[in-house]
């Protein structure tokens, strides 16, 4: 569905993403975790062709068989909503405050699929139904400020699903919501992905939410994916020192701490331009080797479909 190869995103000389490889098959649900500034949003945006103007990108991207490497804005526009869709963190801000939510969701149906007004309206009501919006007919005519946070996010999900995308990227879709609402939204996303055979990229700070939503998990640090594999494998036997730090510093998973934020690892994420050229984690790593700061560790398999990028792996220590 998505094949991304060696994606690097630069702001001037600073690298916000470095050598990201990513594959996503139909219906696959991938969780992405990492501290603030680790590049999660940049990764999501790069798959939509929506990086900031100041960003320079290199690497290859194929989406649903179409080569998007170096694609022009018009080609990206043609696949947005129809192949890849994205929802964002702050549902109130993400909706046009002056439009009835029904009209907002109708827009891509009319623009991209050429639906008539009536057909689009009927389809919106269907989508509202599908995303669990109570009383769709009444909600159709409401403005964003008249809805609750959970309802707004459901509206945004309806909007994202309107043109039946093959991939949905959800960038911290539950961060702004109450805990119990957040749970229902994550469950909704899982259900929709399963029913539609749609791939899901679920970006979050929240390890528990990712564990609940995704089959696979990718841990990001300093613009790189440092470890990735099936959720249970990564969480039960983390191989990268950064992942281990994350898990050690937090209480046992599933112990009711569903809204646990990523715990604090000693030190803070360095500024992008101060990251080491070798392993991004060097300087903060407790088990650092002498060459870590200068040599970039390759990603190595550590289990079935499970790999990590650290010089310690496979080294005799």
């Amino acid at each position: 569905m998505i094949e991304a190869n060696d994606i690097t995103v630069r702001f001037g000389t600073a690298e916000a993403l470095r050598g990201i490889n990513l594959t996503l098959s139909p219906g696959q649900r991938l969780g992405i975790v990492g501290e603030s500034g680790s590049g999660k949003s940049m990764l999501g945006l790069s798959l939509m062709g929506m990086l900031p103007d100041a960003a320079g990108m290199s690497g290859q991207i194929r989406i649903d068989g179409t080569d998007m490497t170096g694609a022009k804005i018009a080609s990206w526009r043609a696949i947005r909503a129809r192949k890849v869709a994205m929802i964002f963190q702050e549902p109130l801000a993400a909706l046009n405050p002056l439009r009835r939510v029904g009209n907002t969701v109708m827009e891509p149906l009319r623009q991209h699929l050429g639906h008539s007004k009536d057909a689009a309206r009927a389809r919106v009501l269907q989508l509202f139904e599908e995303t669990g919006i109570q009383d769709p007919v009444a909600k159709f005519r409401q403005f964003p400020h008249e809805l609750s946070g959970g309802q707004r996010q459901r509206v945004l999900i309806s909007l994202a699903l309107a043109c039946n995308p093959k991939v949905l990227i959800a960038d911290e879709p539950t961060t702004a919501l109450d805990a119990h609402v957040a749970l229902r939204i994550t469950d909704l996303l899982v259900r929709l992905a399963e029913e539609r055979g749609m791939a899901l990229v679920f970006i979050s700070h929240d390890l528990a939410a990712v564990a609940r939503t995704a089959q696979d998990i990718a841990v990001m640090y300093g613009g790189e994916i440092v470890e990735r594999g099936p959720v249970h494998a990564v969480l039960s036997s983390p191989h990268h020192p950064y992942t281990q730090g994350l898990l050690l510093a937090r209480p046992a998973l599933g112990a009711g701490h569903l809204r646990e934020r990523l715990p604090v690892i000693p030190g803070t994420v360095p500024a992008m331009r101060d990251l080491a050229v070798g392993c991004r984690f060097s300087g903060r790593c407790a088990v650092e080797l002498p060459h870590c700061a200068t040599e970039r560790p390759a990603s190595r398999p550590v289990g079935a479909h499970h790999d990590a990028a650290c010089h310690r792996i496979g080294a005799a220590t």
């Binding site: 526009r77 869709a85 994205m86 801000a93 046009n96 827009e107 891509p108 991209h112 909007l159």
Partner: peptide, 17 residues
């Protein structure tokens, strides 16, 4: 700069629209 403009772009709408 507001978020809903990003949503509109993510919906694949033309620049003019």
């Amino acid at each position: 700069r507001l978020d809903f403009v990003r949503t509109a772009r993510a919906t694949g709408l033309s620049r003019w629209r």
